[in-house]
Computed example of a mutant assay.
Amino acid sequence: MASPKTTRYYELAKIGSYRNLEVKEKLVNPPKAHGVLVKVHAVSLQYRDLIVANGFYPAGTIPDKLVPCSDMAGEILALGEGVTNWKVGDRVCANFVLDHVYGDTNLAIQQTSMGGQAHGVLTQYRTFPAHSLVKFPEFFSYEEASTLPAAALTAYNSLHGPTRVRAGDYVLVLGTGGVSIFGLQLALASGAIVIVTSSSDEKLKIASRLGAQHIINYNKVPDWDQEVLRITNGVGVDHVLEVGGQGTLTRSINAVRMAGYIHIIGFVSKESSDINIVGRTIRKGIILRGIQIGSVSQFRDMVRLIIANPEKTRPVIDKTFSFDNVLDAFAYLESQKHVGKIVIKVAQQSLN
């Protein structure tokens, strides 16, 4: 395949609204040493993309005229000098944080977080460092694979971090967004018992079809933490995937067992609380763990788990949009009507 001369891409002309996204075009440069040129087939959206565009992202400096989004899947078109572990035609994802290869992160590594501190992937072609790439399961389409870098890896890092989820553990998943659905799937693949909360009975039906053993509509059961304790015979859950933030954290603390893990992932809840979180955390010996996606090494381990459990871990894609309808995709993300992931099909034609 001949290397492209130009690429169309989106840039955020001004922070404040995703409606400030504009389509631009620029030349495609060949990959430098240890770099790889990739044709982007699909990009998936996450909540972070929305708050970055709208000006509510709490971490780091955003580059001018940001190219948004962090999650992609594509095929390798060209290799830079010194790249020996990839070949043209390989189907890959780039890690959310390009330089987080293994171990703990640091400030320098964080500056390579795409779609936030660094330019992202909402483009037809892009070069990546060879060390940032991961081959995704062969039986996944590009659209499915594009959901893995942030949502799936965040859930995997939560459940397979310092203390791995074990068969028979109770896992509480808040909501039915991208991270939450992957949390449900990966927990089930590890043999856990999963409780899912949502304000929508329709969304909870989908969670049940995916295998959730217990579901709670928190509009109908406002004291959902007490229902979790009832389900677990008063003990509490081993792990909580906490995506709500301040508005849900106090109930998550009530619902987790002593010395259990609460994995702090997001802050989508619009509620607030003045409960003494510190005191309750100390009293129960809870581990509050902030999650910053994951490393390339963890990404590879996650792919192995997915390959071993193909039926339980198939990505749930709510809706797919074309590259020309990116604003509609962001509007749908903002509506929070989706279950699972929203995907933008970048390439005109996909190989799968």
Score class of each variant (00 low, 15 high):
residue 337 K to R: 13
residue 318 D to L: 02
residue 246 Q to T: 15
residue 69 C to A: 12
residue 66 L to Q: 05
residue 31 P to W: 02
residue 59 A to D: 11
residue 7 T to N: 10
residue 96 F to I: 04
residue 162 P to D: 15
residue 68 P to F: 06
residue 318 D to F: 02
residue 307 I to V: 13
residue 5 K to E: 10
residue 51 I to L: 06
residue 106 N to A: 03
residue 57 Y to L: 08
residue 244 G to Y: 04
residue 344 I to G: 03
residue 323 F to S: 01
residue 266 G to A: 04
residue 331 A to N: 06
residue 319 K to L: 12
residue 135 K to W: 07
residue 51 I to V: 14
residue 271 E to L: 11
residue 175 G to K: 05
residue 38 V to Q: 04
residue 244 G to M: 09
residue 337 K to A: 13
residue 93 C to K: 09
residue 146 S to L: 04
residue 291 I to L: 07
residue 332 Y to D: 10
residue 318 D to A: 02
residue 188 L to S: 13
residue 214 H to A: 07
residue 294 G to R: 00
residue 177 G to A: 04
residue 199 S to M: 08
residue 115 G to P: 06
residue 93 C to N: 14
residue 58 P to I: 02
residue 278 V to M: 13
residue 68 P to M: 13
residue 245 G to W: 04
residue 160 H to P: 15
residue 320 T to P: 03
residue 95 N to Y: 05
residue 106 N to T: 03
residue 166 R to Y: 08
residue 329 A to S: 15
residue 96 F to N: 09
residue 316 V to H: 05
residue 187 A to L: 02
residue 26 K to S: 12
residue 91 R to N: 08
residue 236 G to A: 07
residue 96 F to R: 03
residue 104 D to V: 08
residue 35 G to V: 06
residue 267 F to Q: 10
residue 90 D to C: 09
residue 235 V to M: 10
residue 225 D to V: 00
residue 256 V to Y: 08
residue 243 V to I: 13
residue 314 R to T: 14
residue 108 A to V: 09
residue 70 S to R: 08
residue 274 D to C: 05
residue 324 D to Q: 12
residue 156 Y to H: 01
residue 129 P to L: 14
residue 140 F to E: 01
residue 60 G to E: 01
residue 222 P to D: 04
residue 35 G to S: 15
residue 225 D to E: 01
residue 74 G to C: 10
residue 210 L to C: 11
residue 261 Y to Q: 11
residue 61 T to V: 14
residue 127 T to Q: 08
residue 312 K to N: 01
residue 158 S to N: 12
residue 159 L to T: 04
residue 138 E to Y: 06
residue 259 A to V: 10
residue 12 L to I: 01
residue 185 Q to D: 09
residue 227 E to M: 10
residue 314 R to V: 05
residue 151 A to E: 00
residue 252 S to V: 11
residue 80 G to R: 15
residue 339 V to N: 05
residue 5 K to V: 09
residue 108 A to I: 09
residue 326 V to D: 00
residue 25 E to Q: 13
residue 201 D to P: 01
residue 188 L to V: 13
residue 42 A to V: 11
residue 84 T to Q: 15
residue 160 H to V: 11
residue 247 G to H: 12
residue 9 Y to W: 06
residue 101 V to Q: 08
residue 62 I to E: 04
residue 196 V to I: 05
residue 277 I to K: 02
residue 297 S to L: 08
residue 149 P to N: 03
residue 230 R to M: 09
residue 307 I to R: 13
residue 194 V to H: 01
residue 37 L to Y: 07
residue 288 L to W: 00
residue 220 K to T: 13
residue 325 N to P: 12
residue 12 L to A: 01
residue 134 V to R: 11
residue 275 I to Y: 13
residue 218 Y to H: 14
residue 187 A to M: 03
residue 66 L to M: 10
